[in-house]
Design a protein around this nucleic acid. Structure first.
Lengths: 336, 336
DNA sequence: CTGAAAGCGCTAACAA
DNA sequence: TTGTTAGCGCTTTCAG
């Protein structure tokens, strides 16, 4: 069981390390006789190259870090799956880093006291803002996801949140809704995705000549389905009238569905509900959930494209790529 | 932005590499004067130790691999979250390896042609069986999860599936159900968890004097909610009578809920439904889902305990630890 | 308490 | 086509 090294194989086969290395790497120009002699030495000894040593020698780790707030949030777990698959396709392994939206943990993703761990980082920040990131960025190739921050020198992949919210709002309006609520956590999220979605929401209402009403912005205390239930229930209790709800994510939408059901409001007859992220949850509910669907596969492909360019040496200004989205229409907010 | 090394710091501070290393590692016996001189050199140069080099020198990687079938399956994403948190607590990073239940990918987890990548592996096999694993196990510390395989020399963490299924069955029986169906994929899963759960299910029925009926074993074609819908719908169409359904996992239970709703069967009045895994999904449905709840946190702690013993050098026979479970009772199958 | 130097296992430039 | 050898950056005896 003792550790066998390249040189052990070389000795057994009676060749140099270089030749063994060539065989290991399928280097084409190796005499067939030698190749098979070396190969059988490898098999006999059960040799397996030591990756750490290879890394030190080459300077490449073959790993990317994926830093996300919560692994088990449906959106992020689905994103992670795409990342894992794309990484495999491109020959990388994935190191997972859960920040729990904690500023310290987020900072650690970038300012980490160690180096040489991964070739690049795909990071979806929540708390860190543009300047924090610009300051801490330590030179490891980095691609940002989401809307929390966008330093000019850093690459970034996102969807057009304003447009997506506009699409969803128009969809609700076109089915005759006029009192459309927006369910979100706004307290801690001034600069991020939520404000962009609110923008699209407002634009949609205004272009349809519908008056904005602050009472229709429903504030949840945190990002859970339960908080969504509470926010919607309170609104109903307060007597707020609405015939549609746009939700910041699918979990909120589930909360909204529950609250409406408890209040004996029928979905979609009385109130239409739209979620966001189009996670698997959207098809699990009843009624099934109409949801804004960011093109997750495209996000991941774009992120890797940018990252690999950085890894290859690109040092220029940050590229901001916008990928597609769509509105997946299901029962909770059908077309007219 | 050039790469700063230990020796650069040493030169700037006018000390040896050893001293710098001592400072980096907070080694206690360093003269305060030196320490601060070194520290300021570190700061000035922005030195960060290269992890790869450290690994090569120490032989420890500080990483564990987590090999699971699907990152975005709710059970595994929740498990992953626990793993990530426990890993952080114990000073490890997590490399994620998605097998998609593919035999080749599973084999690669163990028989991997490279070594020295991680200190240990936590692996939830689906396809690989006991002997496959016993054969391929290459000596990297390994802990198995689930019931697919349990080689005698390998550590293993699981819950008592038979007992848990028995508990759930008794629960249904005690609320007066007598025609209890079991929804699962049985075709490809003879030796695994499903058969154990079926065992507990049968035992529960028999001890209550209820006759077994093969027609009550509902077979889904794959592990998705949709397949669950189809299986339950077909049973209803075939005229199979039942007043309870135990489901192999929560996603099947969601499928069952949908199928029952579509068939205008009321849950739990007409049919009680029990899920398995107690994922977040269970509280998202309506009615909410009664579900068998493996103690995920305990699974993860036990897995790390075993793994760290292996990493520390334990070479003995496999330990098989059984952690707790409970039945979380919600609306879909309330108590009597 | 600090310094010098020998590895850790592999890669790659340079020779042969 | 194959062999030699000098690193990659850090840790860690062993001296001093």
């Amino acid at each position: 069981m003792a550790r066998v090294r390249l040189i052990d194989v070389a000795e057994l086969a009676g060749v140099s390390m270089k030749t063994v290395s060539n065989v290991v790497h399928d280097y084409p120009h190796v005499a067939p006789a030698l190749r098979s002699r070396v190969q059988s030495a490898i098999d006999q000894l059960g040799y397996r190259p030591n990756l750490t040593a290879r890394r030190l020698a080459t300077g490449r780790t073959g790993m990317v870090a994926l830093a996300i707030p919560e692994i088990d949030h449906p959106y992020f777990s689905e994103l992670s799956r795409h990342i894992a698959e794309e990484a495999t396709r491109r020959g990388y392994r994935v190191l997972i880093e859960q920040t729990l939206s904690d500023p310290t943990a987020e900072r650690a993703v970038l300012g980490d006291r160690e180096a040489g761990l991964v070739d690049g980082v795909i990071f979806h920040p929540v708390q860190m803002e543009t300047l924090d990131i610009a300051k801490l960025d330590a030179g490891t190739p980095l691609v940002l996801l989401g809307e929390a921050a966008m330093p000019v020198m850093t690459d970034h992949v996102m969807i057009d949140n304003v447009q997506a919210a506009l699409d969803a709002t128009r969809h609700l309006l076109s089915s005759g809704r006029r009192r459309i609520a927006f369910l979100a956590v706004t307290a801690d999220d001034i600069t991020g995705s939520t404000s962009q979605r609110l923008l699209g929401y407002q634009q949609g209402l205004l272009e349809a000549g519908v008056r904005l009403d602050p009472a229709l912005v429903l504030e949840a205390t945190e990002f859970t389905a339960e908080a969504g239930v509470r926010a919607v229930t309170e609104a109903i209790v307060r007597g707020v009238e609405f015939d549609g709800v746009m939700c910041r994510d699918d979990r909120f939408a589930i909360g909204a569905l529950k609250a409406l059901q408890a209040a004996a409001r029928s979905v979609p007859a009385d109130v239409a509900v739209v979620g966001w992220d189009n996670t698997a949850l959207a098809s699990y509910t009843s009624p099934t959930l109409t949801s804004v669907s960011p093109d997750k596969a495209a996000i991941v492909v774009a992120a890797f494209d940018l990252l690999e360019e950085r890894i290859a040496g690109y040092r220029g200004v940050g590229r901001h790529v916008v990928v597609g989205h769509s509105l997946v229409v299901r029962e909770s907010a059908p077309g007219h």
